[in-house]
Design a protein around this nucleic acid. Structure first.
Lengths: 215, 215
DNA sequence: GCAGTTGAACTGTACTACAGTTTGCTGCAT
DNA sequence: ATGCAGCAAACTGTAGTACAGTTCAACTGC
């Protein structure tokens, strides 16, 4: 093993690091939906030039966490009923399209593993982790489509969704979450496509319904 | 009618306009795949500040036409075999998922209309227009999914694809294009989902095959 | 109360500067 | 000729300053 093992130079730009950091803060709720990201304030506070912040925020725009309004700068996206529904619709279409495909063994394993990790998180009572694992389970389902582009797209939807979920502080017990997902997993295991599709639909529908109540 | 009809103020930023203009040039082939977009050169040539160009190029990154490399700046994306295949795979998954849904009347009308416009372009012998109409036909199919988010995603794939197609200067007669699409349309009209899926698959497969030969 | 005005705060853009990286070139060694 | 080291030019990444135009909220006069 090389003596230089693990050594690596900074292979990223300041703007990228700022974007990552800001994304984290936004996700954590430091900026609420609809809040403006004031460039000068952030720049002076972090000791970087306004250019750099501006670039970082443009990178954030890539991930869909903020959008630009002319002469108002960057604004954190806010969940509206329409947006949430559009997001869930896209999810439902992708997941149902995926679930009717017969999984290869390693794909099934991945789904089972994702489910087990979800169960584990639920037992531990870690709400944030449950959300993560929940989304990871669905990502594993979409992976059945065997399309990296769609995986990436779904991941971006997921990021948006996670943000909304933390904002809306999901009201659901971990046990319920696990039970719902177990139904989906069972249908996949049995190869019962129709039931799997029905379960996914039901799952998405209750989710969007619950979210809408909070709006 | 107001005396101010049609009057509108500039409701966009310079960077956005530059991004639009650059995208157009790139699509038209002014910059080849793999070419670097040199900020200072563009800035001085267009008489804007380098900041602004930088921002414009970040916007371009949103549309996927360029990607950033550290210390090398923006580079026009280049079609590789893997990328083209990943793109077509995503298309195939979306279109087959869409085509098994029973279209509402207005959706069927839209598809038929798209096909007729394709035919018309083919008769006129306008190759560029044929490509446009071809892609519009497929967009109409994806619209069956009733998901704006997926429509948008497909549109972004389409933009990338159109770029590759112009780069690779597709070798196919308009008549062939029309004939292939007619098969798909007929299957949709008959409500024969299995055949429609098969036709889509065949269509995508021949397309990707043809593109791969050119790489 | 309310429309109109004003001013502070902020964005959009330009310009300058410079350190660190790439990259092509030049000449030296083979 | 060929390969290589080292150098120089070209560029990017980032900082900092400046200023016109836009927003927005507080203030003013009615």
């Amino acid at each position: 093993m090389s003596a230089l093992e693990g050594l690596s130079v900074r292979r990223t730009t300041t703007a990228q690091q700022l974007a990552d950091g800001l994304a984290e803060r936004i996700m954590a709720g430091a900026f609420g939906p609809g809040d403006r990201l004031r460039e000068s304030a952030i720049a002076t506070e972090l000791g970087v030039a306004r250019n750099t912040i501006r670039e970082a925020v443009r990178i954030l725009e890539l991930t869909g966490l903020v959008r630009y309004e002319v002469n108002r700068g960057a604004v954190v996206i806010a969940p509206t009923r329409e947006k949430v529904e559009a997001l869930y619709t896209a999810r439902e279409r992708l997941e149902t399209a995926a679930i009717v495909r017969t999984p290869r063994p390693e794909q099934l394993d991945a789904i089972v593993k994702a489910f087990e990790e979800l169960e584990q998180a639920a037992r531990a009572g870690d709400a944030a982790l449950v959300v993560d694992r929940d989304l990871a389970f669905h990502q594993a389902i979409v992976a059945l489509l065997d399309s990296t582009r769609l995986d990436e797209f779904f991941a971006s939807l997921t990021q948006e969704l996670r943000f909304y979920l933390t904002v809306l502080s999901k009201s659901e017990t971990p046990e319920e979450v696990v039970a719902e997902h177990r139904l989906i997993l069972d249908a996949i295991r049995l190869g019962d496509h129709d039931r799997a599709v029905a379960e996914i639909r039901a799952h998405v529908e209750t989710s969007v319904h619950r979210l809408n109540e909070l709006l």
